[in-house]
Simulated scan of single mutants.
Amino acid sequence: MKGAIKIKLIQRIFIIWAIALGWTFIGQLVEFFLGFVSFTMPISDMYPMQLLLLYSEGIGILAMALHYRHKPDLLGFSGEHIGKNLVAGTVAGLLLFSLIWLIVTLLGGYHVTTVFHWHQVFWLILFLFGYGVQATFEEIVCRGYIMGYWLKHNRLGLAFLTNALFFTVLHVANPGYDLYAMIGLFLFSIAMSALRLLTGSIWLGCAFHAIWNFAEGCIFGTSVSGLSSTGLVFTSTNTTPAQLLTGGSFGVERSGIALIAYGLVSILLIALSWPRITRAIDDRRSAAHSKYSYQ
């Protein structure tokens, strides 16, 4: 009996992942199409191409918002203090990334060059909102749909684990992906999951995720999960092959400093969320006891 229940649970996990993968495909339709037709653009026009790919993920946001319009709690759209959460997430994400980047730089990991010109403010604004769209879509799929499904069924462990694994595997094709990158992405997911649990919505996590990618690529000019940077304010060139310091070609989230930071932040956020966690555990035990008593 228990074996059959486990098999059904595993099947359900893969079904949820398959649906999430389908939503991911919809959000990246433009990128898949351009790859299918082998479309290329001159290097001088790369900013418009990068922005197109970022903003096109809004298709996925719109599709999911419409499909689950009667279930806002599932995607984490509901919740109080949305504006405050967006501001708090932006500030926290920028401060944490800046701190990690500063530590790596002071330890000699980067050669930093200033490349900012006032005419680039226009591009900075476009990329800020573009990364907002891209990060929001990833959060809606992972911390929204996948995590929301298991939270709805009061399976807190699966809510954390399954969305973190999906997010980690989602980046497996990125250049420079390896074991350390996988650990970094997994720990990042755990931290973002704890933010959803703590705030009751995905908005703080969306802002944190968006400003992290924006700071990584556009402000400080490092790789964004293996993808080339835009570097509109600074460019940070690796000065050492010690990948645990800089993260190598994958970027800061692969570095040992980021892994430590992710771990500490996750522990802190889980500790702050502990009342919600214990309440969910008690609710599940009560439901299981009631079912057993009834039988």
Rank of each mutant, 00 (worst) to 15 (best):
S38A: 15
P175T: 04
A18V: 07
L62S: 08
N154I: 12
I270L: 15
Q28Y: 15
F36I: 13
Q243N: 11
S249F: 10
T90E: 06
F36A: 15
I5D: 15
A287N: 14
E138A: 04
N163W: 08
A288P: 09
L227I: 10
E216F: 07
R254Q: 12
W118K: 10
S201V: 05
L268K: 14
M182A: 15
H171A: 03
W118R: 08
K71C: 08
N85G: 13
H67E: 14
G248Q: 06
S38R: 15
F36E: 13
D73G: 10
H111S: 15
N154M: 10
S98L: 04
K6V: 14
I140S: 10
Y177E: 04
L124M: 12
G27A: 04
T168K: 02
V141H: 01
C206H: 06
G144T: 03
E138G: 05
L62T: 12
L245T: 01
G58Q: 00
G35V: 07
G247T: 03
I16V: 12
L53D: 02
H81W: 08
S236C: 09
I267F: 12
W17M: 00
T222R: 09
G76R: 01
F25E: 10
G184E: 01
A210S: 08
I257M: 03
G248D: 05
L161F: 13
L259D: 01
G58E: 02
G217N: 00
A135I: 03
K6L: 14
Q295R: 13
F127I: 04
T230I: 14
A261V: 06
T168W: 05
V224N: 02
K2D: 14
T90C: 04
E80K: 12
S273W: 06
A287H: 12
N213T: 06
M41E: 13
H81L: 11
M1W: 10
L62H: 07
S229V: 09
L124Y: 02
A194S: 10
S193T: 03
W17I: 00
R143W: 02
V112D: 00
D73Y: 09
F97H: 08
I277A: 00
F208W: 08
L9P: 05
L165H: 09
T237F: 10
R279Y: 11
A92R: 06
L156M: 08
A280V: 11
F116A: 02
R12Q: 12
K291S: 14
Y110L: 05
L195Q: 04
I270F: 11
G217E: 06
L52A: 05
N174R: 05
R276Y: 09
Y294W: 12
Y294T: 13
L126I: 01
A261Y: 04
A258D: 12
Y149H: 10
K84Y: 11
A159D: 02
L165V: 15
A210T: 02
C206F: 05
F14V: 08
C218R: 07
I19L: 04
